[in-house]
């Protein structure tokens, strides 16, 4: 277990930097996580992050990339429901990076 320090508060993370307690999440933590991933958050990034949080709220899991892509397409249309778009926003993988920023665990089956 490790810790991160954001705006004077400390948060527990696992050894890969994923937040341990989902309830700890807030936008400052998200921005901090994004920074460590070399991502500057735009509205498009937030849309994915918020979508992931909604998905988790409903199903209690972080979706596999394939499932995220399909679900994004269903909600926001085909131009956002494809892996080129998602990898454009999160170059090292929307599952890995976006889930971390969203304060979710790593997707099940994500290596």
């Amino acid at each position: 277990m490790s810790q991160i320090e954001v705006a004077g508060k400390s948060y527990e993370t696992d050894e890969e930097g994923y937040l341990i307690n989902l309830a700890d999440w807030n936008t400052e933590v998200a921005n901090y996580m994004a920074q460590t991933e070399n991502i500057s958050m735009t509205d498009a990034h937030w849309e994915v992050v918020n979508f992931l949080r909604e998905y988790f709220e409903e199903y209690q899991i972080a979706p596999a990339v394939r499932v995220l892509t399909k679900a994004m397409g269903k909600k926001f249309g085909a131009d956002k429901g494809n892996s080129e778009y998602l990898y454009g926003l999160f170059p090292y993988g929307p599952g890995k990076q976006a889930c971390k920023i969203a304060g979710l665990p790593k997707p099940t089956g994500c290596i």
Binding site: E58, Y59, Q60, I61, P63, A64, V67, K70, A71
Partner: peptide, 14 residues
């Protein structure tokens, strides 16, 4: 204990 029953509803998406 975590309630994992909502996850059965995600299976369709998989």
């Amino acid at each position: 204990i975590k309630n994992f029953s909502p996850t059965y509803r995600a299976l369709e998406g998989y």
